[in-house]
Design a protein around this nucleic acid. Structure first.
Length: 271
DNA sequence: AATCTTTCCTGCCGGC
DNA sequence: TGCCGGCAGGAAAGAT
């Protein structure tokens, strides 16, 4: 599933093909994603030049000069670069046909993704305006996290998955980072000391950075822009390892539900 | 049939 | 009383 490392992997794979290219055509086969794809998108985009491909949280931002195409992969989306004219398959909802004989194709079986247009400063878009800091940037530090969680009774795991606190930490990496930091997922967020916040910040950063280096997770249906899976899943400490031995101490990994999501942890290594 | 995935939205609760 | 923020739960589609 696309979490931040998968989105960043996608961004890097796409950027080389897209940057500086003109948009020859736009094909909408099925507009009903999480929100409808704007009907006037072909009119808006035809003839535009792609200036840059950026990322904010799990949103891909295609800067077209006059505005920004906002893309989200939802739970099952993937973007690929293919030769123009490649026949569309099931769940291929959206194409950007480029001037260089290639196209960028969105496939999204579960249709929780999004394709939206915003003119002007994209960071003022309602979906982006209230987001917390990027986990890999300097302003996400121990002092900030400590402050953001102060007085809160919500479980630490749910707190770091809250986009208002920090963006881009989904279920897999939340579980992994908490294991690496030695923090039990049920701990009340407000109870985490400043030094433990520092440890957690460091482990969230390291977990995401390593996953990006490895090309993202390949859980279920994630593929990169060439259609290849990532390799991070081979490195999980706890995710999906219910009942298996902890890789550090041998204690069986436990699975619990928090906010309808599965959490995995070691009762011995995580306090 | 239940589960899994992301994230927005609704509505309840308690505090002031 | 009414507003606010925190928080829980629900919703969307499809594969397994």
């Amino acid at each position: 599933m696309p979490e931040l490392p998968e989105v960043e992997t996608t961004r890097r794979g796409l950027a080389a093909h897209l940057t500086g290219q003109t948009i020859a055509d736009v094909v909408i086969r099925n507009a009903s994603l999480r929100w409808p794809i704007p009907k006037n998108l072909p009119k808006l985009l035809r003839g535009q030049t792609i200036v840059a491909l950026k990322r904010r949280a799990k949103y891909l931002l295609m800067d077209c000069g006059s505005g920004t195409l906002i893309l989200h992969l939802g739970m099952s989306g993937s973007l690929r670069i293919l030769p123009a004219g490649t026949p569309a398959e099931k769940h291929d909802h959206f194409d950007l046909v480029l001037g260089n004989g290639l196209l960028m194709r969105l496939r999204d079986p579960r249709r929780f993704g999004a394709v939206l247009w915003h003119s002007g400063d994209v960071h003022t878009h309602p979906l982006l305006a209230a987001l917390g800091p990027e986990p890999l940037e300097e302003n996400f530090d121990a002092r900030y996290l400590h402050q953001a969680m102060r007085g809160r009774s919500i479980a630490i795991k749910q707190c770091i998955m809250d986009n208002h606190v920090v963006v881009g930490v989904g279920n897999i990496y939340a579980n992994e980072a908490l294991f690496r930091a030695g923090i039990k997922p049920q701990l009340a967020a407000g109870k985490l000391s400043l030094p433990r916040c520092a440890r957690l910040v460091a482990e969230i950063r390291a977990t995401l950075a390593e996953a990006i280096k490895l090309g993202g997770s390949s859980l279920r249906d994630f593929v990169n822009t060439s259609g290849q899976p990532g390799y991070f899943q081979q490195h999980y400490w706890v995710y999906g390892r219910d009942g298996e031995a902890c890789r550090k101490c041998g204690t069986p990994i436990k699975q619990i539900k928090q906010g309808q999501r599965s959490s995995f942890y070691c009762g011995n290594c995580q306090k």
